[in-house]
Design a binder for these strands. Structure first.
Length: 284
DNA sequence: CTTACGGCCTGGGTGC
DNA sequence: TGCACCCAGGCCGTAA
């Protein structure tokens, strides 16, 4: 499941091969996950890649058009759960569920594969700030400790929901929220406003540490994530709670539990991450 | 406004 | 061999 570290890994891979490349042709399979498929077919051929960057879990491919189309535009890609981007020789075997092909001027092909098609793709004209990205919160790796504390300490929502909320912090998903909360020894249902200063600082450090380590290991391959060269990541080997139901906590040996928080499976250690007393349903 | 929750999209994996 | 069911992330509508 692509979250910040996986998207960052894909972006770095694309940065090594895409800038300067010209897109010759566009071929599309199913297009129900593309905002305006006709726009891709119309504006991309002849365009050149200026750069690739990440914004939260979004990939942004910056392009300059050919003479006819708009001069500058961006291709916005969200990988959803099962989206994969691969840059490969044009004659390489085509994986099932591959729905987007961009022929490149070096004989290779940019391909987008997405089993579930929960991903999104959209072409946006102009240089202006990209509307879908404007509502997103701070990048957890760019936010200062002070900013992080301010985002959380005034909120009554559960900390797990806050970390998952892309308008608060952009880029965290289920894996990295659970791993961060375990490292910081904070239970997922604790309310943001209930966290003490020392806990907030611990969480801030945990989030940054986990994300940076995950990037270093090129992400977590839990379902079918691979990077733009088709390689799996290795951070799944360092998971301490995620999908470890019933296994022993690496810190205290207690059995890892699972509960639903913010509509998501949440793995935690019942001994290291103590549940709050105050927000249990039905208790007075 | 903030928060919580259910439903929807899709298809692979699981269990009967 | 079939098939109902679960689950995943983001988003949206609704309700308190």
């Amino acid at each position: 499941m692509p979250e910040l570290p996986e998207v960052e890994t894909v972006v770095r891979g694309l940065q090594a091969v895409l800038p300067g490349r010209r897109i010759h042709d566009v071929r599309l399979g199913k297009t129900d996950f593309i905002e305006d498929a006709a726009a891709l077919e119309r504006d991309l051929p002849g365009s050149r890649v200026r750069g690739v960057r990440r914004h939260g879990k979004f990939l942004v491919v910056e392009l300059e058009g050919s003479n006819s189309g708009p001069p500058r535009f961006s291709l916005l890609i969200h990988l959803g759960m099962t989206g994969q981007i691969l840059v490969c020789p044009a004659d390489a075997r085509i994986a099932a569920h591959t729905h987007v092909f961009f022929g490149l001027d070096d004989g290779r092909e940019f391909r987008y594969t997405d089993i579930r098609r929960f991903g999104k793709m959209r072409l946006i004209a102009g240089d202006s700030p990209l509307a879908p990205l404007e509502k997103l919160g701070l990048d957890p790796l760019e936010a200062s400790e002070k900013e992080f504390v301010a985002l959380v300490c005034s909120r009554r929502a559960r900390i797990k929901a806050l970390l998952l909320d892309q308008t608060v912090l952009r880029g965290m998903g289920n894996i990295y929220t659970d791993e961060s909360l375990w490292r910081a020894r904070i239970h997922p249902t604790r309310l943001g406003a209930s966290l003490k200063e020392v806990e907030l600082r611990r969480l801030y450090r945990a989030v940054r540490g986990i994300l940076n380590e995950a990037i270093r290991l090129r992400g977590s391959s839990v379902s079918d994530y691979v990077d733009s060269e088709g390689r799996t990541g290795e951070f799944q080997l360092r998971h301490r709670v995620y999908q470890r139901l019933g296994e022993k906590c690496f810190r205290c040996g207690a059995q890892i539990r699972r509960t639903i928080v913010a509509g998501r499976s949440s793995y935690f250690c019942p001994r290291c991450q103590l549940a709050p007393r105050t927000n249990r349903k039905g208790s007075r």
